[in-house]
Structure formats: structure tokens, C-alpha cells
Design a protein around this nucleic acid. Structure first.
Lengths: 232, 232
DNA sequence: ATGTGAACGATACTGAGTCCCATGACGGAG
DNA sequence: CTCCGTCATGGGACTCAGTATCGTTCACAT
């Protein structure tokens, strides 16, 4: 811990100088000099100037991918929500860095674009996973696209709220709420086609009929499926 | 028409050279020379090398913005769907260019990022519009984010399908289908909380009661709202 | 004929990103 | 102790995108 890694020193120097002098006004030479290394070394650790602000994004993407692939068709929903939680947790873990980066990204268009690009990569990952999962069902591609977009959007909404508030609370509650919101949305889409399409059966029978006979008649009428709801 | 505009000639040259020699291998000098103008002139018409492939994106964004702002709270949904149709129609209008660009963007990461950035701008526009529209309602921010993401995702899904098929059909049908899908989703979210929560009323009344009296009694019971569905 | 302004060309400059080579530290084999 | 690979680093040259500035040309109006 006496000598932090060069990679870390470079990232620190980059954020510090960007904060102080602005992004465009800071050259790679400045960053390298501030970290006590040469320009060549900077590009050995980061592919570009922007990369210095988004380290370990590849790692995070890999973890999300791993979490998604470690699931069967039955646990797909859990896998998705878990994966989203992983991403948010990563931001929360070092809130310090996340907040500085947030303020920086808000001011520099180039960095905004960069972040959008990585968001798109996450969304693509989710889309492919969900797509292979519910392959075969009608509108599978469309639904996969929509679910992926919604999940990512929910995450971003919660994250931005947390960042705007200065990272002063635990966002896992809001995230669960948002994810539940999304999941409820898509659950609704599963069963009934349209709000008005629900068929309601009113059964009339003799007061003296046996409950078994009534249930049997109803079951037959519904084609073997149990009734969706009981009406008093 | 004998002499097309310099702007157009530059865009043509750019796409042609990118197609033939690759994006990174083509310099701005090449493009300018191929269009018969100087390098300076290129940067007078396009802010960057990437811009040459995405001309009139600002214009399209402005049209979407205009369509959204030209609406009251009552016509908001129509405004959103209209705006999306405008965007897709723009792609369909010169399918030739859209297809070449699609193939190009699929191969060059820098251009993919660029496109993601402009998608994000559309989404932001929709989000802000929807947000101010349903401001005040519970979870307004979250719902705005989700609706915007879904609408944009629906558009992109339809667009990509159309592009992959080589632009060989009219995508306005699929777009309407996808948008209806999205709107149905969010309609579900409005009224009933959970599938089982729907309240069903069974009315019993005298055979001799007048229809008006029955309707009046029911209306009163439902709190002034007309019944959601009629049951035979 | 002369002023005026817009469009274009030419040139120089900064800085990101790439490539290649030299150097120097380190560790193992003899 | 010396020799020899290996690897991280430094250094410098190079390409090219993007910016800024200035001069030129041409159309047009007065």
C-alpha cells in the first residue's frame, strides 16, 4: 500500500486533473507527468484518454455476463435482477469515485457518449440473454428488446437519483421497487391479451346442487383449467 | 441538379471510400479530394469525420422535438407515436443510404458508439417530454424513463429488423404493432395493481326495474366511472 | 469601378493514438 | 560472479483528426 499500482496512480491523476483544469485542457502528457510516468506508459495501461475514467468497466461487464449465463430458464428472472444489482452495487461500493465521475460526465460531452456506449453494451448483453431465454414465444425479439431496455433504464434511473442526491442513501430499496415495477409490467403482458378480453363466467345452478357437481361442471366448462379468480 | 451540393458530394465520397477502403484507412484528405474540395471545406460542412455518415441527424432530432412540443396533455400519446413514426419514416425514405450506413456501423466500433450517442439523445428527449407530461403522478420519473426507453427500443427493434431484411418491406405495420405493444404495457400499469385485484361486481335487481334506473344505480356504485366491461 | 461579404483554399499548430527501438532492472542458469 | 533472456518502461518519430488564422476569389449591390 506504500506504492499504489501505476494503473491506480494514473486514474487518480486523470480524475484530479480533469476536475481541476477541465477535460479538454488536460493532456495525456499532463496525466502521465502527474503520475510520475511517461506518456508511453499511460497508453500501456489505458487504451485512450477516456479509458482512464472508466477503469474496470470490462470487468463489470464480464461479471454481469457470468451471472446471466449461470442460470437455467427457470431462474432467468432472478438472474436478470441479480445482474442489475451487481452493477449498482459496484457503483455504490466506491461512491467517492462514482460521484466525481458523475459530475465530470455531466460536463463533458465526449464522456457522456462514452458512457452511453457502455450502457448500450449492457443492454445488448441483457437483450441477448433474454432473447435466447424466451426464444420461440411470439414476439420474442421485441419482448427481449423491451425487457432489456426497461431493466437497464430502471437501473439508470435509480442510479442517477442516487448520484444526484450525493450518494447519501442506500439505493437497493429503490432499485428493488423499480425492478418490481418492470417485472410487474411484463407479467401483465403474459396472460391477458387486452383489458377487455377477459372472459367472465356467471354460473347459475340449483340451490340444491352438490358443491362437487357444481365444481365439476365449471371445470368442464373452463376446459380443465382452474378458474382464475373467485367472485362473491 | 446538375451540380449537387458540396455537402452531398462530401457525404457520398465519405460513404463510398469507407465502403471501399474501410473507415480507419480513409482520411479526411481522401474524402475531400474525392469530392473535389479542400480539407478545410470538409470541416466547414461536417464537424468531424463521423458526422459525414450521420448528416441531418440534428434536423431529425429537431423535428421530433417539434412534434412533441406541439401537443397538449391529452394528445401526448399520439405525439409520442407520431414522433417515432417520423424517425422511422426518415430511415425508410432513403433506404439506400440507411442500408449502407447500417452495414458500415456494424463493422466500425467508433460509428456504433456514435449511433448509440444519438439514440441516447432521442431517448432523453422522449424522457423529458413524458416526464413533464405525467409530472405529479406517483413514480413519474421512473415511468417516464421506462416509457422513453421502451418507445425507443421498440423503434430500434423494428428498424433493425427492417435493415437486416435489406429494407424489402414497409415497416410501418410492425412499428404500429410494437408501439401498440408498448402502450398496452403501460396501460396495464395504470389501473389494476395486480391481476387478482380486479374487482368484479355482480348486480342483482328486479326484473321489472327500468334500464335507466339500473344504469344509474350501477354508475353511483362505481363512483361515477363507467363500467370497464360488460358481462353477459 | 469599388466596396462588401460569403465561400473556399492554404498553412500552421495542438494533441491523441500508434509504432518501434533502446535501456535498465530483475531473475535464473551456468 | 557472469551471462542471458524477459519484461516494464522511456523516448522519439510518425499519422491524422480537429482548430485557428489568414489570404484569395467571386458574386452582387451601390
Amino acid at each position: 500500500m506504500g506504492t499504489p499500482s501505476i494503473s491506480h496512480r494514473l486514474a487518480e491523476a486523470a480524475v484530479a486533473l480533469f476536475d481541476e483544469n477541465g477535460y479538454d485542457e488536460t493532456t495525456v502528457d499532463d496525466i502521465a507527468a502527474h503520475a510520475g510516468v511517461s506518456r508511453s506508459t499511460f497508453f500501456r495501461y489505458y487504451r485512450s484518454k477516456e479509458d482512464a475514467i472508466f477503469p474496470d468497466h470490462d470487468m463489470l461487464l464480464a461479471r454481469v455476463n457470468a451471472r446471466l449465463r449461470a442460470s437455467t430458464a427457470n431462474t432467468a428472472i432472478v438472474a436478470v435482477t441479480d445482474a442489475v444489482r451487481i452493477v449498482l452495487a459496484q457503483y455504490v461500493e466506491d461512491a467517492e469515485v462514482s460521484l466525481r465521475r458523475y459530475r465530470l460526465v455531466g460536463r463533458v460531452p465526449a464522456l457522456r457518449d462514452r458512457e452511453n456506449a457502455s450502457v448500450a453494451r449492457y443492454q445488448r448483453l441483457f437483450r441477448e440473454f433474454i432473447g435466447t431465454w424466451l426464444a420461440g414465444s411470439p414476439d420474442a425479439d421485441l419482448r427481449a428488446e423491451l425487457m432489456a431496455a426497461s431493466v437497464v433504464a430502471a437501473h439508470n434511473q435509480v442510479l442517477r437519483g442516487w448520484l444526484r442526491a450525493g450518494g447519501t442513501y442506500d439505493p437497493s430499496g429503490p432499485l428493488d421497487h423499480a425492478l418490481e415495477y418492470v417485472m410487474a409490467t411484463f407479467r401483465h403482458l403474459e396472460q391477458p391479451k387486452e383489458p377487455g378480453d377477459e372472459q367472465i363466467v356467471v354460473a347459475a345452478f340449483s340451490r340444491s346442487a352438490s358443491p362437487q357437481a357444481v365444481m365439476e361442471a365449471i371445470k368442464t366448462h373452463l376446459g380443465g383449467r382452474p378458474p382464475r379468480s373467485e367472485t362473491i
